[in-house]
Write a protein that binds this DNA or RNA. Sequence first.
DNA 1: CTCTTGATTAACATTAACGTCAAGGTTAAT
DNA 2: ATTAACCTTGACGTTAATGTTAATCAAGAG
Lengths: 139, 139
Amino acid sequence: MGNKYYRIDEVANKTGLTKRAIRYYEDLNLISPQRTESAYRLYTDEDIEKILRIISLKESLAFSLAEIKNALELDSEVKKILSTETADLATLKNYIEMIRRQINLIEEKINKLRASQEKFENLLSQLNSLEDKVEKEDV
Amino acid sequence: MGNKYYRIDEVANKTGLTKRAIRYYEDLNLISPQRTESAYRLYTDEDIEKILRIISLKESLAFSLAEIKNALELDSEVKKILSTETADLATLKNYIEMIRRQINLIEEKINKLRASQEKFENLLSQLNSLEDKVEKEDV
DNA sequence: CTCTTGATTAACATTAACGTCAAGGTTAAT
DNA sequence: ATTAACCTTGACGTTAATGTTAATCAAGAG
């Protein structure tokens, strides 16, 4: 299985990226799909896997200055409420919800980073084994 | 203490940002330093703290597509070596070092995210206490 | 008082990561 | 064979986050 080829529109749907973004990634040599005789791009399941991995790495970043501003504002608004204790229940519940969202957002980024970190840790231990092996052979 | 004022050049040195970036952050209303009569910007220690926090949040992101490309290339090179077992000791040590760096880089990002997450979790628990209090008062 | 160093605003330039046409081939169905 | 629905490569536009340069004003040293 897995010998199927997908055209760019299908890949866009599967990944959530736009066709433009997918082509752009190819410009950057992040992916190199095959081509038909008439130059149509053909993507394999592995290509799609790679794209999903790129997306995951990309999404683990995404803190623009605008988002930072929001976070800091939320922070200072809450601090003000806490120090003055001037807020009705509805407002409080509102802020609690916003803070929860911030925490979850950060958590998701952390999870994606952890996933990518684990992959590298896995490679590292395999490389270390290989190193041991080569060292002994070299004696 | 802490009543000292810093001019923009000092702040640039203390934070590692350029003066241009610092002014840009002000354009975005991320910071609002005082001014002298002649419009010189005057920063307090709190302003500097805030800038450092912004930097930390910003750095916890920072995975450009170029960096992603490097990471994926490193990954596939290492996988190739592992599958063919064709590499001398020096090369191996080299790759081990590069992987270590990747892992550390990701670790640092995670740490910064965790720090910011903890701050929000702290606010959350304080808000929850306040909520309890308000609910009881309202009976 | 002048000279050097540093600050200010304004404005145009640049890079990354796409969005958005435009002009023209391809494929598949009718 | 034609048409709708894709695909291709330009090429110019856009936003965020600065870099760079220019013209001008301020401050402190000698």
